[in-house]
């Protein structure tokens, strides 16, 4: 039980951090909701008015915001499964007693420490147009010359996949480390018992590894999904939303609206939409994870 009789001191100890959270997270969050219900536009001669859900109605009927929403969904639906499966495969490769395995762990994790802005700049070169571009050269090599060089970042079909690949390269190591910790927490006895029962490699994976890893995987999928909805840096540097809005995202549109066009109200509404998505996913994760606990 916590110690008694130290009330005021304890409150004072936690006060600085709590004040920080209130002023710089909670207050702006409430303000985001409030501003999204107004017509606030910096430098506008129009008087500030409550407009109710008008901003939401407007952005949900705005083709460019809907386009950004769809791009963002495509990004999430591709990056999250690919990255999770890749991270799981890599974690399983690393979860073995082999020589030099620690070195491989260092190499796989290394991209995570690279700032996204730097990663984006490097991948602009990787996606350079013409036969000299590394990605073009690689595709030409593995297709035995069948690939004709493309300008990835200026190609409506290829720009978004290019950003997806960049993000997967940078992000997989993070998920891999979390999954590896989950794998290492699985008791060896479970595998021994399964082997005695005659389970093969695949069956051990299906009936021991996956169920034991369930909560870790749910967590990893959630975090990756939330990160994917926050996509901004790579877009800003690699394509600036183009070509023809092929790579816009919710955050990119919000920044365009609030900062480039000074429409604070509609920018706030966009970020609230993003928060609602994040909130929904978090609640879903908590629900699925707690169901599991009830079962076991």
């Amino acid at each position: 039980m916590p110690e008694e009789g130290r009330g005021p001191a304890a409150f004072l100890l936690s006060a600085p951090a709590l004040v920080g959270l209130l002023l710089f997270v909670l207050l702006p969050f409430l303000l985001a909701v409030a501003l999204s219900l107004t017509n606030l536009r910096l430098g506008s001669p129009l008087p500030l008015e409550w407009v109710g859900l008008e901003q939401y109605r407007r952005i949900l009927n705005d083709p460019s915001f809907l386009h950004a929403l769809i791009n963002n969904l495509l990004f999430v639906l591709t990056v999250v499964p690919v990255q999770t499966v890749l991270a799981l495969a890599m974690a399983m490769l690393l979860n073995q007693r082999l020589g030099a395995i620690a070195w491989f762990r260092v190499l796989f994790f290394m991209p995570v420490v690279f700032p996204l802005s730097l990663v984006a700049v490097v991948w602009v070169l990787i996606f350079a147009p013409g036969p000299d571009g590394p990605m073009n050269a690689l595709l030409e090599l593995i297709s035995f010359g069948a690939w004709t060089p493309r300008d990835f970042l200026h190609d409506e079909q290829l720009a978004l996949p290019a950003i997806m690949l960049t993000s997967i390269w940078q992000g997989t190591g993070f998920q891999m480390v979390v999954i590896l910790a989950g794998l290492q927490a699985i008791s060896a006895e479970l595998y021994e018992a399964a082997t005695i029962d005659g389970a093969g490699c695949w069956q051990r994976f299906w009936f021991v590894t996956l169920p034991q890893l369930r909560n870790t995987l749910i967590f990893v999928v959630l975090v990756t999904t939330i990160l994917a909805f926050r996509l901004f840096d790579q877009v800003q540097i690699m394509t600036q939303g183009g070509p023809h809005d092929a790579t816009t995202t919710i955050m990119f549109e919000a920044v365009q609206s609030a900062f480039a066009r000074q429409q604070i109200g509609s920018g706030a509404a966009m970020t609230v939409v993003m928060f609602l998505v994040v909130l929904l996913l978090s609640l879903l994760q908590r629900r699925i994870a707690s169901q599991e606990r009830e079962v076991s």
């Binding site: 001191a9 409150f11 702006p28 969050f29 606030l40 939330i226 706030a268 970020t271 928060f275 994040v278």
Partner: peptide, 30 residues
């Protein structure tokens, strides 16, 4: 430590945890 309001404020910390910077960037900027 044990103090009045601890449980309530801790729940607040947990709730605030899921608000990403992106969701508050516009009003914070304002």
């Amino acid at each position: 430590l044990s103090w009045r309001g601890r449980g309530l404020l801790f729940n607040l910390v947990l709730a605030v945890m899921i608000i990403p910077l992106e969701a508050i960037a516009v009003p914070l900027f304002y």
